[in-house]
Design a protein around this nucleic acid. Sequence first.
DNA 1: GTAATAGTGTCTATTAGACACTATAAT
DNA 2: ATTATAGTGTCTAATAGACACTATTAC
Lengths: 244, 244
Amino acid sequence: MADDRWTPPEVMLAVDLVILTLRRSLLHVLLIERGIEPYKGTLALPGGFLQHAEEDITAAAHRELAEEADMDVETLHLEHLGVYGAPGRDPRGRVVSVAFLAIAPRLPEPAAGTDAAAARWQRADQVLSGDLELAFDHRRIVEDGVENARAKLEHSALATAFCGPTFTITDLQRVYEAVWGISLDPRNFYRKVQKTSGFIVAAGPERKGTTGRPARLFRAGPQKALNPPMVRPVEPSIMKGSGQ
Amino acid sequence: MADDRWTPPEVMLAVDLVILTLRRSLLHVLLIERGIEPYKGTLALPGGFLQHAEEDITAAAHRELAEEADMDVETLHLEHLGVYGAPGRDPRGRVVSVAFLAIAPRLPEPAAGTDAAAARWQRADQVLSGDLELAFDHRRIVEDGVENARAKLEHSALATAFCGPTFTITDLQRVYEAVWGISLDPRNFYRKVQKTSGFIVAAGPERKGTTGRPARLFRAGPQKALNPPMVRPVEPSIMKGSGQ
DNA sequence: GTAATAGTGTCTATTAGACACTATAAT
DNA sequence: ATTATAGTGTCTAATAGACACTATTAC
């Protein structure tokens, strides 16, 4: 500690991406089948090491998003999620991974012919339940990412990131239902969303639905923080008659 | 990218601590006057490099807490805050810092005769306003830490971490007022806190106040997540008459 | 008594939650 | 007309916010 010549240990820095989207009204996460050891053949989050010593961490996340998922960062919500650096989590040595959460609107399957060829959308519930096995500590990272998204839906306009540039109120309701894993009353949802100032604003005239009455289109409003918040219904918890 | 022999760059990993407490009903943050270059003599967050290549990051945060702040980690709330790794943020090279947020009950000044000798509590508002200059990007980290604490007060029982093992409802109200920087109606606060199930539970009989009616004592309840949440009053925003 | 702090009750406006109908399109 | 989806209105119970008084101690 008083050693003049002591220098700090160095670690390898990686980024991992939890990319969430909605497909057929179900929450999905993008996973890649690893082509190299360790965990070759196992599903894992897209990600990788910093490319050079001067690369910015967020820039690395953007790069991986483009390389491994063939996605344009401009259209995506991307935010810091956490740091996963337990010794021994990677057999190659001390790897510290910075995880990011990305939210994508419904997209086609990742294009073949890129690094993303092995990428596939998988149902989030299958990952969370353990039906799908993931490499490293990536299941834990997905858990944290989903929980982060669930919480953010309450207080931010994150839900609009799951939709395209324009969307209907029903589209937005599907996002809340899929991420929270519950169903909501459309009448109360309409009322709440419309009176939450700055959340969504009218856009264009109407959408030519496949059938039924055409829906009005909206786009994301200027407000990133929702006030009042959208409230996640309390699940009838096990704590019955707890005090008071 | 297809180079077989490529190995990832390595970075130096540091931890930094934003330690918040209340002193005289004002939010304070623990800062240290740096004894070495760079930024020698400037105030900075307590923290430092990983000690060896196998040290766990959270363990390193605990160690710094003990070394630099002379605090027992058992009594403190400690959670991940963010990662700060912009190239060039540290003149010594590529340093990536994992920041932690710690909440401490009111404590005596850090003991002299330890690494913490140069540590001092400083008012958070003076840091946020820029009246106090901090080394590196530490002011930004403090901003993020305070904002994190403000948000967490709404939905978690974090406020109890600012108090000792037992506290009065008024003590708790002071925490909310100091961190949020507003004043609250004590009657409504009492009602809200008492009916938020699991937030606080009665403890011991009463406290011998210096003067006035003795207050009942409480301790932190079992519930970490508050439901319903404590709501931070909307500041009369500049957005007047913004749509409906 | 006075001063100082702790604690409670009430009234009102707003909101959340439950619930059923009307509207507009494709076929 | 039928089917399918979009959108609105009303009632009620719970809650937030404003506000004034009583309670218990030290002196």
